[in-house]
Every structure is written in C-alpha cells, then in structure tokens.
C-alpha cells in the first residue's frame, strides 16, 4: 500500500460547555489508507495543536475493538460504513480520496455530550449496577466442570457477552433505545447456572433503570443489531422481554 496519498475533508461536530455546538470543516492531506479512523483523527489533532488551536476530543482506549470506548457517528452511521467493526478498527481504505466525512457524537437524551465527540455513557454503568451481576461465594474456586452447561447455552451466553457497551445500538436506534445492550447483559447471565439466583430481580431492576435513564422503547427495526460492532442478535431482546414479563408475573417482589 502506498502511504499518505489520500486527501480527506472532514465536517466534525465541535462542542464545549460554553456553546451549543456546530460543525467545523477540516481538510487533511497525506492520509494513508492503512490508517485507522482514529489515527486519522490523531493526525488532525497534531495539526490543530501545532496551529495552537483546541484538538478534537474523542473517546478511545484499546484501539483493538474490544473496550467499547470509541464512538463517533460517521456519515450517518455509528462506527462508520462497515458491519461488525468499531471506529478504531475502521480504516481509511474504506473511504475514497477526496471524500467529505461527517462525524457527529452519539445522540441520546441519556448520553449527554461532554465535549466535541465525547458523550457521557454513565447511564450504561448505572443499568449494570442495577442488576448486571451475580453473587459468588468467596473461598476456593470450585472444580471447572462441576456445573454442567449445555454447549448451546454457553455459546449463546458468550455471543451476548461479546457486547462491549459502546452504545452504538442507542446511537443507531431511531428511539435511542438501549434494549440491545440491556438484553445482552441480561441474557449472558440468564443463560448460565451462575446467573439463576438473581435472575428475575435482575430483569426487573435493569429494565426499570433503563427506563429511568430516559432511553426509548424498541420498535424492532433491527438497526441496533445491524450497526452493533459485535453483531449482538435481536434474539436477546426477545429473551429480555420474556425474562422481564415472566419476572413481573411470577416474582414475589411487589
């Protein structure tokens, strides 16, 4: 691959506490097709710092697609044009020389913009804290095979546990609904024997917290699953609905 031969035009959302925000236009030369999208932003920020202006704030951490920190709504889609890919794993070869790329933060009442492209995703943490855990006794770890788990259940739980909590589902949903995220977190525990102790109270509390945070309801458009970098399935939302309704009908919590 030839390096540094792309010219990219950017429209980036800039916002701080003191203003309501708006787009800034940037022009970038010498972009390599092998750069990740975030590396392209690093190049932009170096130029902004050299010019003595404020660099663009954006979330990032592992840059290998497993931490869920990066966000960015790129050309009208969370994490950009590819399926099953986070922004950090998106490369500039997915764009053409001379393209204009529009970058916005996640938009949701529950995800307020902190600065530029950084949004506050603490709402997800509060949903997890409401019930996304299991009780484990202290002491020696028990023998690994003492709890029989069907292979299918383990696979389904693992697929749900692949959720990295980036919030692309909320960003993609026309209702800014968090149901794909919450359903993945409920599913990964409901499917395994370790998750049975708190199974019904978990569904009740996590859904209640999800509603309290101001996320929307689900219209089953499937946008969340289509845009999810971990390709979490809509099957999980159906399971969450069963878990929640079943818990509401049968639990003794009134």
């Amino acid at each position: 691959m030839s390096a540094g031969n792309m010219h990219i035009k950017l429209k980036v959302w800039r916002q701080s506490n003191t203003n309501k925000g708006g787009f800034e236009d940037y022009s970038l030369d010498g972009v390599s097709p092998d750069m990740s999208f975030l590396e392209m932003f690093d190049v932009l920020n170096e130029q902004l710092i050299e010019a003595g202006t404020e660099p663009v704030a954006f979330d990032h951490d592992c840059r290998e697609g497993i931490c869920g920190a990066c966000s960015m709504y790129i050309n009208g889609r969370p994490h950009g044009p590819l399926r099953g890919v986070t922004t950090c794993q998106l490369h500039m070869r997915s764009f053409n020389d001379g393209d204009t790329i529009v970058v916005e933060p996640w938009r949701a009442e529950a995800f307020p913009v902190i600065k530029d492209l950084v949004v506050d995703r603490d709402a997800f943490d509060r949903v997890i804290a409401a019930g996304g855990f299991i009780s484990v006794n202290t002491g020696n770890a028990q023998d690994a095979n003492s709890l029989p788990i069907p292979k299918e259940a383990a696979d389904d739980a693992f697929s749900a546990a692949a959720c990295i909590g980036c919030g692309a589902c909320v960003a993609a949903c026309k209702n800014a609904s968090a149901m794909l995220f919450v359903s993945a977190k409920i599913s990964q525990l409901a499917l395994l024997p370790q998750g049975q102790a708190e199974r019904s109270i978990r569904a009740e509390k996590m859904v209640a917290q999800m509603d309290a945070e101001g996320f929307g309801a689900c219209t089953n458009t499937g946008a969340c699953s289509a845009e999810c970098p971990k390709e979490i399935s809509m099957v999980n939302i159906a399971r969450m609905n069963r878990e929640y309704i079943g818990a509401k009908i049968s639990s003794t919590a009134v």
């Binding site: 009208g76 993609a172 929307g216």
Partner: peptide, 25 residues
C-alpha cells in the same frame, strides 16, 4: 412521545436506510 424525548437533538447527517427498512421506522 417517550421515543421522541429519548433523542431531543437529532443527527445532522443520518443514513438509516443502511440498517433498517423505512416502514419499520
């Protein structure tokens, strides 16, 4: 009403047809 309130500030550029059908939305 609640769904509209969940996103008070919308996107300036959006490409929803890439991930869902117009009638489902």
């Amino acid at each position: 009403k609640t769904n509209a309130a969940a996103r008070p500030i919308g996107y300036k550029v959006s490409n929803p047809s890439a991930n869902s059908t117009w009638y489902s939305r």
